[in-house]
Structure formats: C-alpha cells, structure tokens
C-alpha cells in the first residue's frame, strides 16, 4: 500500500506532538483565552473602521473598562467554579449550586430587612449555603448515594425552597448592608473581582498546600485506594460538598449585592452548567484526581470573554449559545489530545 505516505504523515504528527505537547501541558487553556482576546480586539476594530491595518488600535475589546466588566461578569462563575472544582476533583458533580445561590440570596436579603439583624445578612448567606452543601455531602458520603442523583434532586428541592423563602416574590432592600461588594471598588478594583480572586487563591492553598488537599486528589484518583491508605473518604466528600455549598452561598451574597434584590425563581438559573463548563475548560478531569483551580479561573474567563466579545461584535443571542457550546466541546477535545501524552499505564 502507500506505506511511505503513511509514514510521512506519522512523522509529521509526531513532530507536531513534540512541538506542542509541552506548551499545551503546562499552559492548559491559557493560549485559548489569549487567542480569543486578540481575535475579539481585531474583529471589533474591523467592525468599527472596516480597515485591517487600523483594526488593532481601534478595537473596543481590550479597553480597561471592558476588561473590568469581563472580570466582574466572570466573578460569580469563578466562585461557583472553585467550589465545583473541589467536587469534580473527587469524581463527583454538584448540580445544585445555582439553586443554593438563589436560596442563599433570598436568605441574605430577607434577613437584611429585619430591623437590628441586618448585619447578619452576609454571614447568613454563607451559613445557608454551607448547610445545604453539607446536606448534599452527608447523603453522598454516608448514605453512598450517587452525587449526580443527590444534587439533581437538591437542585429541584432547593429551587423550591428559594421560592418559598420569599413567598415566590422578589425581595428588595435598597439599603442592603453588604451592597458594596456588588458595586464598590477597592483601589479601583471591583470588590467582586477581589472576592473571586481571593477565593481562587485560598482554594489553591487548600488543594495544594494542605493534607486535606492531597486527600481530595487521592479520593478522586481512586476512592478504594484512598480508603485502604487510611484516608477518611466520607469526611473528604462531606468537605468538598460543604465547600461547594459555602461558595454557592458566597455567590448568592454577591448576586444579591449587585441587584439589591433577590428572586427565588430567576436567580442562578443554569449557573451550575456554566460552573461545570468553567471547570472542564480548565482541564480538570471529569473522572476526578486531575486538575487545578487556576484552570478553572481561566475557564471562567474564557466563558466571560466569549459572552462579552460576541455581544460587542453584535452576534445574536441565538448564535452566542451555539458558538459557546462548540467552544466547550472543542476545548474538551483538545483536553483529550493533551492527556493522551501523559504516562498512564
């Protein structure tokens, strides 16, 4: 047969792999993010001037103001994605984060309306999220129910709880005590961005600098091996779902602060899907044990850049969905290609 052409192709592929493998391996999805930014700058510039030579200078994408908007838009998803990273690293999934976000926001705004107790509003959002997360974790860790089913159920049940909390209405508080985190800045950096970044840094420290973090990776790598090496697997599972709930509560407080309001029906709808997408785009393996929190940050930024850039270039809402879907699938395909090179016998 045409053995020579086959071999030439193989050689080319091998060379290709040798050149790109280390880059993709260390940088993860960062190149994808940067390429998207450059592309949107050029496209928005060209749309403005209809002239390629001036497209870069006149692009509207890479302005300080627009980047700040993108970071703010990514902040809540980053926080949810950070919690989701803990869960997916153990090989689980948390579908209830959007609902927990809504319930926590309802709790926060409702308590802020109680005279004399309004200072409790922010801690109550966190506590509410934590308790709901621990409920998920308890069912998964001690009753050994599948995470997908438990959190699918709690997604629905907690959504109902969120609506119940406000009698299915929108609750407002124009004097929300913690409203500054949704709209204020510190040293010119929005509080939302500061909180998201702090969440990522703390998550990184827990995952990479503590024994618990090592145990999380171990449980994700092989729950049976983890148990046999003396790791308290149920405790680890309880912890990760607790973290996911807690960070959903934080996300709820952030949403409420931006809007001065909360609505149990609409808030956080399908946020879980964006959070999962951010984690997967960040290269965290769906079977657990492999991944990093920095990847999730980049994943959340990619989603936010895509949304913002497509709006700036005037792509219709419908096409935004289609394009975002394909980017997620393409990124995971790239991930498979990347993992093929890692030694696993």
């Amino acid at each position: 047969m045409n053995a020579s052409t086959g071999n030439a192709l193989q050689d080319a592929l091998k060379k290709h792999q040798l050149n790109f493998m280390p880059l993709i391996h260390t940088m993860g999805m960062l190149p994808v993010l940067l390429i998207l930014c450059v592309m949107f700058q050029l496209v928005t510039g060209y749309a403005e001037t209809a002239d390629f030579s001036h497209a870069w200078q006149s692009g509207r994408f890479l302005s300080w103001q627009n980047l700040s908007i993108i970071a703010q838009q990514a902040s809540i998803n980053t926080v949810l994605g950070a919690g989701m990273t803990f869960v997916i690293l153990t090989g689980g999934i948390d579908l209830s984060v959007g609902s927990i976000l809504a319930a926590s926001a309802m709790v926060a705004v409702s308590i802020s309306l109680v005279p004399g107790a309004s200072f409790l509003a922010f801690p109550a959002a966190l506590a509410g999220g934590l308790v709901l997360g621990l409920c998920n974790g308890g069912l998964i860790a001690f009753l050994r129910l599948p995470p997908f089913i438990v959190t699918l159920g709690s997604m629905t049940a907690v959504r109902g709880l969120a609506r119940l909390l406000g009698n299915d209405t929108t609750v407002f508080n124009p004097d929300l005590p913690f409203a500054f985190i949704g709209n204020g800045s510190i040293f010119n950096i929005p509080w939302l961005v500061v909180i998201a970044f702090a969440t990522v840094v703390i998550s990184w420290a827990v995952l990479r600098r503590t024994v618990l973090g090592l145990h999380i990776y171990a449980v994700g790598g092989s729950p049976d091996a983890a148990r046999l090496s003396g790791i308290r697997v149920p405790f680890v599972l309880l912890f990760v779902y607790g973290v996911s709930g807690l960070l959903s509560g934080l996300g709820g407080a952030m949403s409420a602060a931006r809007l001065y309001a909360a609505n149990g029906l609409q808030l956080g709808q399908s946020y879980e899907l964006d959070a999962i997408a951010a984690v997967i785009l960040g290269g965290t393996s769906f079977v657990g044990g492999v991944g990093s929190i920095w990847g999730t940050l980049i994943g959340a930024l990619i989603i936010s850049v895509l949304t913002n850039g497509l709006v700036l270039t005037g792509v219709s809402d419908i096409w935004q969905f289609i394009i975002k879907g394909f980017v997620i699938i393409g990124a995971v395909a790239l991930d498979r290609y990347r993992l093929r090179g890692s030694a696993r016998t």
Binding site: Y217, A218, G221, A225, S285, G289, V290
Partner: peptide, 8 residues
C-alpha cells in the same frame, strides 16, 4: 486499582 494513585 486499590493501591497506587496513578495520576499522582
């Protein structure tokens, strides 16, 4: 399956 963490 039960001993090593192959990704570590």
């Amino acid at each position: 399956e039960l001993g090593l963490f192959l990704d570590m």
